[in-house]
Amino acid sequence: MNASSSRVDAQSGARLSSGLSMRQKQVLWAWSFLAVPVLFYAVVRFYPTLEAFWIATTNWNLLTKPSFIGLANFKRLMADPVFWQVFRNTALYLLLGTPISLLLAFTIAYHLDRVRFLHGFIRALYFLPFLTTAAAMAWVWRWFYQPVPIGLFNNLLAGLGIAQQPFLRSTTQSLPAVLAPAIWAGLGFQVVIFMAGLRAIPTTYYEAARIDGVSNGTILRRITLPLLKPTIVFLVVFSSIGFLRIFDQVYNMTSQTSSDPGGPLNATKPLVLMIYQTAFSSFDMGYAAAQTVVLFLVLLAVSLLQLRLLRDR
C-alpha cells in the first residue's frame, strides 16, 4: 500500500515536471533561489521600514502603548530650530563633502594611473584609511586638532608662527574639521573606482588623440571625463548617500564628557545623530521615526535628482 502510493507519487511528480514547459521550469528555479533573500529583506528591511512610517505618526516612548497622533511629530519637527540647524549641517556635509572628495579622488587617480613606480604600494596607502575603523580614525584626528603642545596641526601652525586655531571647539571650524577625516576615509575607495574607470577607456582613444595633436587638457575635457561618466554617476550617488548619513566621525570627535556629541552648540550635528539622540537618549520613538522619514525622503530625492541630472546630459 505504502509502496504503491509512493510509486504513484513518483509518477505524478514525473508527470508534473514533464508537464511544465522549459520556461516555466526556469521561472520555478529562479524563484526558488530568490525566495530566501526576498523573505529576508521583507522581514528584516521592508517590514521595519513600513513600521517606521507608522511609528512616525504615534507618540510612542517605549513604555506606553503607541497612540496615533497624526502629523503632530512632523509639525513639531518643522517648528524645531535644532532640526533646521541639523538640516543645514547635513546639507553642508553633502554639498562640501561630495565635490571635494570626488575632485581629490579624481586628481589622485588620474595621476596615479600614469605612475608605474611603486604603483601598487601608493594605491594601497590611499586605500588603507578605508579599511580602518571610523571610530579609531576619528580619535586620531581628534588628537590632531588638540591645542599645543598636544595637537599636530596646532603645533605645525605654532612652528610657522601662525595663531592657534580652535578647530573642534569652534562653531564655525568644527564642521569642516569633522568633514576632513570623513573625506579622507572614503578617498581610497573612490580612487580605486576612478582608476578602474580610467583603465576601462581603451588606450587607442588616447593614441588617436595624440596623433591628432590634441592637448592633455582637451583630452581630459573632451575624452576622459565624458567616457568616465558612468563611474562619476556611481561615485556621486554613492558618496552623497555616505555624506547624508555621516555619523561615526561626528559622534567620536565631538563627544564631550559634559554634553552630548554634535556640538559645540549643535554646529556639527547631522540628521542621523539627531535621530540617534532622540531615539536612544530621549526615548522619543515617534519623533525619531518622523526624523527618519524625513532623512529617507531627502536621500530618495537627492539620489533620484542626481541620477536624472547626470544620466540625461
Binding site: P202, T204, Y205, E207, A208, A209, R210, I211, D212, G213, V214, R222, I223, P226, L227, K229
Partner: peptide, 28 residues
Amino acid sequence: EPKERNIAMVFQNYAIYPHMSVAENIGF
C-alpha cells in the same frame, strides 16, 4: 611628438569616440 610628424593613423578598433557624433569625430 606624433602630432609634429604630420601623419594620420587608423586603428584596428577604429578608436572613434562613442560620445561624439560622426561629424564631431571627423572634426576632432
